[in-house]
């Protein structure tokens, strides 16, 4: 990731150590994951030891220290989605992408994560693909959304 971009994000937060989480969130939203060079830069600029950055990046579930796929799939497995068939959706996601929750395929096409609640409980099960919400999804629709994703990439 471009160091200049990282510096820009840090400057926006006045290089305040208390903004560590916000800085990391913004770097991740730019880059999809947190490479070591980025963390080293943050550590220098905010004067926060790497041990604390390691603590923060492993404590909060959002942060990823490994590369993420081009398409991010989040399947909600909160109580409301669970009772309405979230497991079937997860199974379908794994079938189509070959990726288990928490993992990314070697070609960096898909990353799959489970989330605990997206607050769209009336529409369970809910899946989010690249930021787009899909409510009341069924396995067939899940497969279609993911296949469309894969196709749009090949073109």
């Amino acid at each position: 990731m471009d160091i200049g971009k990282i510096d820009q994000i840090i400057d926006k937060h006045d290089s305040e150590a208390s903004a560590l989480i916000q800085v990391l969130l913004e770097i991740q939203s730019e880059n999809k994951w947190l490479p070591k060079e980025a963390l080293t830069r943050v550590s220098e600029k905010l004067a926060v030891p790497m041990s604390r950055i390691q603590h923060i990046t492993t404590f909060y579930k959002t942060f990823s220290l490994t590369p993420k796929g081009r398409h991010e799939v989040h399947v909600c497995v909160g109580t409301a989605c669970h009772v309405r068939g979230a497991q079937n959706i997860l199974d379908t996601v794994e079938e189509v992408t070959g990726v288990k929750p928490g993992e990314t395929d070697p070609d960096l096409n898909f990353s799959v994560e489970t989330v605990s609640c997206l607050g769209c409980c009336a529409l369970g099960p809910v899946m989010v693909v690249d930021g787009e919400y899909h409510g009341n999804v069924e396995p067939a629709e899940t497969a279609k959304v993911l296949k469309d994703c894969a196709c749009s990439q090949e073109q």
């Binding site: 409301a80 609640c117 607050g119 409980c121």
Partner: peptide
């Protein structure tokens, strides 16, 4: 930080 699954009052 409304985290309880099934609850989304605060979000709305």
């Amino acid at each position: 930080d409304e985290g309880d699954p099934g609850a989304y009052m605060d979000r709305s």
